[in-house]
Each structure stands twice: as structure tokens, then as C-alpha cells.
Design a protein around this nucleic acid. Structure first.
Length: 495
RNA sequence: GGCGGCAUAGCCAAGUGGUUAAGGCGGAGGUCUGCAAAACCUCUAUCCCCAGUUCGAAUCUGGGUGCCGCCUCCA
């Protein structure tokens, strides 16, 4: 069985085959840089990142383009509101966005083009559309004529008549058809503008994605992703423009992710019920946020609330704890793919468990990137690893250590495909401080161990309690006392 | 009005014709421990309602009920 992907265009899961064997080309609608990204935006970036990582893991080369919209009405509005130059807004939020997706564990896309860098290509495409009779200029505005494209409405499953009957399309005397949309907008005084055959202005929203995607990926390309709210009109319009301009199919698989809900309602800027990811990072580590996002199938809505976030954090800690235990236990040279089979019966059971986890993980991911199933496979293996590791703490055969090393490798590989990293790490800025913390904690732990040996349990417990208040958890094992930070990579801990 | 989605345990969430209905969080009991913590073990649902199809349905069909989304900027 191979990867099945749900295609919004057909409304069905379809077997995935790239246009060019072995090489997947995908495009993701990136942010408009006028504000910090919120959790809903984050999902639209994490979902394609998971798809990309899975494809890579399955051996495909992936070229991934994710644009940055740096020309847009909302940016102009924000600049006016703050009374600062347009570019200040663009730079500030571009930088913040790059930082946010990196912390979320997203690989840097192969190319991150900006609309402002593709004006000539945009003008070319508009000219071609006018030549082919798909667009018309009215003064310095240019519109796409939706009636000229027979397939208009195919992606959203709506006929042109039905779309107009919805009657929320803005009335505009200039347009030949109410659903016609702007390819080029005339600049008003003071607005950022680029020269064009129709006068100074800026591109409409949809045209940049058509131009940039096909510029880097050709036409057709394989996968186009975005939030479900982009199906109409954004993606519908992208298709119309691109196919009208070239006569070729635009995109082979349309992938749309579901929303994040708050109190049952879609999280959105306009609704005001959103959480920026940087706010969330103060309370939860970026890894926990990412785990939360992949805990449900990408097309379903996810309800956001504190209770679920906390449950997610506990689950994440369990995964990390298991990995850390293995790292303590297994000599480094045993971590990795198993080179020779193990003879020991218990060890071979664990090897089998690792294989089962991989099989189940693949089964889930192949079924339209079912990350919930994939995660269940990871948790299953974690449980078995813990059981074996705790027994191994009291002494283990070489075979067992090799099997544990293999299991650790497996856990890291599978969580890695989801973009998760099983490690507690303090933010880089805190690294020097961590050295000091390690020393001080060890000092306290040593003093407490001495107290325990002398059966002065009041003192021992007091030390443990005080450390707990500081966010340091002690665990006594037969081999001595281990310690860990309770919430290691939250942005700031003020508890 | 048009189009689409969802309803599974206290919470989150898989499962789309036949299995003991995955997994996580929480809860109860147990093992281990000076006590804890962690970990492991056991237990913790008959699938919104009704009517059909079928030898057999959470899974298919029809009808309800409830919730959500798109049709306007939106990830």
C-alpha cells in the first residue's frame, strides 16, 4: 500500500504519485506579514512540514516553496495605523514569522519567495491573461473574467451562479461579473506602488501565488497546501488564473487543513479569539504546541483549550523521559539500526516491537497522513521500551542493550518524521546558566543522599520539596537519584 | 438559499461491515519505594436518536436532533 492523499479537487483519497518520479514539488500559502502568527496559522505550516518530512523519510526528494506575502492591503492598513513606513511592518513580522516557524520545528522551505520580488513575473502573467481574453483593464485596475474560465468553481464545488446567489460578493460597477477579482490594483496616493502597463499599482492577492508557485515548481506541480478557508476564493482563483494563462493543469493534489477552534468557534484574527504562538510559548514549549497540532488528523478541526494542552504536555514529557532514560542506559555505539540480529529472547521481543511500531506508523501515515494513528504507534513502543529499560537498569545483556539502542533510534526516527525532538533543552541563551544549575542541583542531590543514608528523612524530603518548588524533580532509583527540569524549554518560567 | 464537515469513555482522539472498539490525559486498585516520583500491570465506552439494508453495522442507506465551516478578509 502506498500513500493515499485526500484531494480537495476530487473530494476523495487518491494514491499519491509525483509528476516526476522520486521528486515531489509542493507549494504552501505562507503568511501575510502584518501581525504575529497565531495557532491556526501555525497549523497551516506544521501540516505541510509533516507531509514533507514523511515524503522525505519515504525517500522522495521534496522541493517546497512557501511564499511570504509582503504586499497586501492589511499591511498598508497596519502601517497607517502605527504611522510607520510600510517596510517597517513587513520586516518586523517577517522576522517574527521566521523565528516562530523555526521554533515550531518546521524545516526551512526550499524557497521562500516574496511577492515584491516577483512583480515582473506577475505583470507578465496578467498581460498573457489579457491577450488570451481572460482579463480586462478598467483604468489602472485589471480584473480576471471568471466567465472566461469554464471550470471556475470546480475546487469549491460551487457553480458560478451559486456563488453569486450567495450575494455577499461586493458590488462593483467596474466589474463585468460580480465574481471577477482583481489581478492588479491601482495605487491610491501614498500607497506602495510598482509601475505597470496599466499605471502604478500593486498585484491582487491571488496572482502572486500563481506566479511564484509555477516559477519555482513548473506546471503542473504536485501538492498545494493551505487552510480550508483558502479553498474559496483564493485557491479557486489561483487555478483559474494559472490554467487560463497556460492552458495547462495547475496542481495535482489540493491539501487543506482544518481549523483550530476556541469554544467551538473558528480561531481567527477577525473574531479576535486567537492566541499567537509566541504567547503560547510562554506557557508551553514549542514542542508541546507541535505535538498538540499533530495529535489529530489534519483535516479535522481541533478544539483548543488549556486542559488539552496540559494533557499534551504530560504526554510529551513521557516520550522525552523514555528517550532520556535510554540515553543514560545504552552505550552510544549501540544506538542506531541493528546490525546483527539479537539472540536473547526478551531483546528480540523488543526488536519486534520496534518493527511493529514502524509498520503501524507507516500504515497510519500512508492513510492520508493520519498522525493520530502514527502517534499511537509511538506511544505503544514507548510503553514497551520503558518496561524493558526499567528492568535493564538492574543489569542487561549486550543483546538487550543493542535492542534498546535500536528502539531509541526507532523512537527518534518516528517522532522526527512528525518534527518532534525527544530532548529537554533549555533555550540557547540559557546554556551557560544551565552549567551552573547542573552543578548546584548535583550539590543538593548529594547532600540529600547523605541525609537519606543517615535516615534523616525530614531533611531529605525538605530538600526534595524545595527543589520541586524550583521546578526540579527528583527521582530515586536503585542506581541513585536522577533529576530533571519540570518544564525545560518554556520561553520564560515564572513559577 | 447553495456547498461541505462533524457527533465514539470524565476529557482528547483512532477506527468506516465481522477483532478483546487503538492511543494519550485523568480516575481506581496493585508492583516497586523510608515516603515520594517515575515506570510497569489490571480495571475504567457498545459508539447522538429512530427506521432500514445485511447472517452480521460505531462502520452502509433514509429520516431526525445538535454543533461547526465556506459562499466577504481569513490558515
Amino acid at each position: 500500500m502506498s500513500l493515499q492523499l485526500y484531494n480537495t479537487m476530487s473530494g476523495k483519497k487518491e494514491p499519491f504519485e509525483p509528476y516526476e518520479p522520486g521528486h515531489v514539488r509542493m507549494y504552501t500559502c505562507g503568511p501575510t506579514v502584518y501581525d504575529y502568527i497565531h495557532l491556526g496559522n501555525a497549523r497551516a505550516f506544521v501540516v505541510p512540514d509533516v507531509i514533507k518530512r514523511y515524503l522525505q523519510w519515504r525517500g522522495y526528494k521534496v522541493t517546497h516553496v512557501q511564499n511570504i506575502t509582503d504586499i497586501e492591503d492589511k499591511i498598508i492598513a497596519k502601517a497607517a495605523e502605527e504611522g510607520v513606513p510600510f517596510q517597517v511592518i513587513v520586516d518586523r513580522y517577517t522576522e517574527a514569522y521566521l523565528e516562530d516557524i523555526e521554533r515550531l520545528g518546521c524545516q526551512t522551505p526550499t524557497v521562500m519567495p516574496k511577492a515584491s520580488e516577483h512583480i515582473p513575473g506577475i505583470i507578465d502573467m496578467i498581460e498573457r491573461l489579457i491577450e488570451r481574453g481572460h482579463a480586462y483593464a478598467v483604468g489602472a485596475n485589471v480584473y480576471f473574467a471568471v466567465e472566461s474560465h469554464s471550470d471556475y468553481g470546480a475546487l469549491s464545488g460551487q457553480s458560478l451562479d451559486a456563488l453569486v446567489a450567495g450575494a455577499r460578493v461586493e458590488v462593483d460597477e467596474e466589474k463585468r461579473h460580480p465574481a471577477d477579482f482583481a489581478l492588479w490594483k491601482a495605487a491610491k496616493p501614498g500607497e506602495p506602488a510598482w509601475d505597470s502597463p496599466w499605471g502604478p499599482g500593486r498585484p491582487g492577492w491571488h496572482i502572486e501565488c500563481s506566479v511564484m508557485s509555477t516559477h519555482y515548481l513548473g506546471q503542473p506541480f504536485d501538492i498545494h497546501t493551505g487552510g480550508a478557508d483558502l479553498v474559496f476564493p483564493h485557491h479557486e482563483n489561483e487555478i483559474a488564473q494559472s490554467e487560463a494563462a497556460t492552458g495547462k493543469k495547475f496542481v495535482r493534489y489540493w491539501v487543506h487543513n482544518g481549523y483550530i477552534n476556541v469554544d467551538g468557534e473558528k480561531m481567527a484574527k477577525s473574531a479576535g479569539n486567537f492566541f499567537t504562538v509566541r504567547e503560547l510559548f510562554k506557557k508551553y514549549s514549542p514542542q508541546v504546541v507541535r505535538l498538540f497540532l499533530v495529535s489529530k488528523h489534519y483535516r479535522s478541526p481541533i478544539e483548543f483549550n488549556e486542559e488539552v494542552m496540559e494533557a499534551t504536555e504530560r504526554g510529551y514529557n513521557r516520550l522525552v523521559d523514555a528517550a532520556e532514560l535510554l540515553r543514560e542506559l545504552v552505550p552510544e555505539e549501540y544506538v542506531g539500526e541493528l546490525k546483527e540480529p539479537v539472540a536473547d529472547e526478551e531483546a528480540s521481543r523488543l526488536v519486534q516491537a520496534s518493527q511493529d511500531a514502524v509498520d503501524e506508523f507507516v500504515r497510519g501515515m500512508d492513510d492520508d497522513i493520519n498522525t493520530a494513528v502514527a502517534l499511537a504507534a509511538i506511544y505503544d513502543l514507548t510503553r514497551q521500551v520503558n518496561a524493558a529499560a526499567h528492568r535493564a537498569q538492574a543489569g542487561a545483556s549486550q543483546d538487550m542493550l543493542r535492542a534498546l539502542g535500536h528502539a531509541l533510534h526507532t523512537l527518534e526516527a518516528l517522532t522526527g518524521v512528525l518534527g518532534l525532538e525527544l530532548a529537554r533543552h533549555a533555550p540557547a541563551a540559557e546554556q551557560p546558566a544551565m552549567e551552573l544549575v547542573r552543578g548546584l542541583v548535583q550539590l543538593a542531590v548529594d547532600l540529600r543522599s547523605e541525609a537519606r543514608r543517615e535516615r534523616r528523612f525530614d531533611t531529605a524530603d525538605a530538600i526534595r520539596d524545595r527543589l520541586a518548588e524550583l521546578g526540579i524533580i527528583l527521582e530515586d532509583t536503585p542506581q541513585g537519584t536522577r533529576w530533571k527540569l519540570s518544564a525545560p524549554d518554556r520561553e520564560a518560567r515564572n513559577d
